[in-house]
C-alpha cells in the first residue's frame, strides 16, 4: 500500500503585497497554506528579505558586522548602492535610527533628504523605518513618506500610539504600512481593525507582531506568528490575512551570543560564525512560523537564509 499524506484544506488566504515600482516591483505573500506546505496549496511568491541599512554609521553594531560595510556605511547612499549592486539585494530597509532623540536626534527634514537621496540611487524596493520612538516617528515618517511619494515603499512602524498620523502619511503618498504591536495577538488584530476603520486598505498592511532573537523570547514571537497564520487560514479571519514581518537583525545583533568574544567564551567557538548562524537561525524559525518578509543585516546570514528558502519552496 502506498503512503498518502493527509492534507489540510484552508479557507483563507494571505494577501499578496507589492513593493517598489515597475519593472523592479516585488511581490510577497499570497499563499493559501501554512509556510512551505506547498503540497496542500499554492505559495506563489518567495519570502522577501530586505537588507538593513541606516541613516547614520552603525557604530553600535558588532565590529565584524560593521566590517562588510566599512567602506560604505558612513554614507547611506553608498551603502544602499553597495547592497543593490555588490550584494544583489532584493530590497533595502532604510532605518532612520539617527532620528531617535537619544541618538543623533536628526530632524524630519534631514531624514527626508536621506530618503530622497537613497531612493534616487537605487531601483530595488525600499522599506522606510523610523527609530521606534513613537512621538518622533510621527513627524519623521510623515516627512519620509512625502519624500518617497509614489515609490510604493513600505512605511513603518505604525503602533497603537501613533498609527493615525503614520497611516495617513502612508495613504496620502501611496505606500504600504507596517502595523506593529508588542507580542500580543489580540492587540495585533485590534490595530489592523483600527487601521481599516480609518479607511486604510487592509490589503496594504504588513503585520509586525514584534520580533525577538533566538534564546531571547523567540518562542513568544513564534507562537504569535503561528496563531496569526492559523486565524488567517483556518478561520478565514480577514483582519489577520496580512503578510507578517520579522525584523530580525534589530534583535539578534544585541544579544550576548552575537557579542561575546572568543577570549571570554572560548567554548562557544568563532564569534563571527556564531553571530551569522544566530541571525540565520532566528530568521529561519520565523519563516517557519509564518513570516513572509524579513529584515536582516549580515550578508552571509541573508545568503544562508536564501538557500534555505530555495530548498523549502
Amino acid at each position: 500500500m502506498t503512503f498518502t499524506p493527509s492534507k489540510e484544506t484552508y479557507t483563507g488566504k494571505v494577501y499578496p503585497v507589492s513593493v517598489g515600482t515597475a519593472p523592479h516591483e516585488v511581490v510577497f505573500g499570497g499563499e493559501n497554506i501554512l509556510p512551505f506546505h506547498t503540497f496542500e496549496g499554492s505559495s506563489p511568491n518567495r519570502p522577501l528579505i530586505a537588507h538593513e541599512i541606516q541613516d547614520v554609521p552603525p557604530y553600535d553594531w558588532p565590529e565584524y558586522l560593521q566590517k562588510p560595510f566599512q567602506d560604505v556605511s558612513n554614507d547611506p547612499v553608498s551603502w544602499a548602492k553597495f547592497c543593490q549592486e555588490t550584494l544583489g539585494a532584493g530590497a533595502i530597509a532604510l532605518r532612520l535610527i539617527g532620528t531617535h532623540p537619544d541618538r543623533e536626534n536628526r530632524s524630519p527634514e534631514d531624514a527626508a533628504k536621506t530618503v530622497k537621496e537613497v531612493l534616487s540611487s537605487i531601483t530595488i524596493p525600499c522599506i522606510i523605518l523610523g527609530s521606534n520612538h513613537t512621538e518622533k516617528d510621527s513627524a519623521v515618517l510623515i516627512a519620509a513618506a512625502e519624500a518617497a511619494k509614489d515609490r510604493n515603499c513600505i512605511l513603518g512602524k505604525a503602533q497603537e500610539a501613533n498609527y493615525k498620523t503614520i497611516a495617513a502619511a502612508a495613504m496620502a503618498n501611496n505606500h504600504k504600512l507596517i502595523a506593529m504591536s508588542e507580542l500580543d495577538i489580540n492587540l495585533s488584530k485590534q490595530l489592523n481593525i483600527l487601521l481599516t476603520q480609518m479607511g486604510f486598505d487592509k490589503e496594504r498592511i504588513i503585520t509586525d507582531p514584534m520580533s525577538s532573537a533566538l534564546g531571547y523570547g523567540l518562542e513568544y514571537t513564534y507562537s504569535v506568528m503561528e496563531r496569526i497564520r492559523l486565524a488567517a487560514l483556518t478561520q478565514n479571519d480577514a483582519t489577520m490575512q496580512q503578510p507578517i514581518l520579522a525584523d530580525v537583525g534589530l534583535y539578534v545583533w544585541k544579544v550576548k551570543e552575537t557579542q561575546a568574544s572568543e577570549n571570554d567564551v572560548p567554548q562557544w567557538g568563532s564569534l563571527e560564525e556564531r553571530g551569522i548562524a544566530w541571525e540565520a537561525m532566528t530568521a529561519t524559525a520565523f519563516l517557519l512560523s509564518g513570516a513572509g518578509f524579513l529584515i536582516m543585516r549580515h550578508p552571509k546570514a541573508i545568503e544562508a537564509v536564501g538557500k534555505i528558502i530555495d530548498e523549502l519552496i
Binding site: I185, N186, L187, K189, Q190, I193, L194, Q197, R227, A231, Q235, D237, A238, T239, M240
Partner: peptide, 12 residues
C-alpha cells in the same frame, strides 16, 4: 474560540 478576540470584534 472560533474567532480571535480583539476589542473591536463586534464591529467586524
Amino acid at each position: 474560540g472560533n474567532t480571535l478576540y480583539a476589542h473591536s470584534y463586534l464591529e467586524m
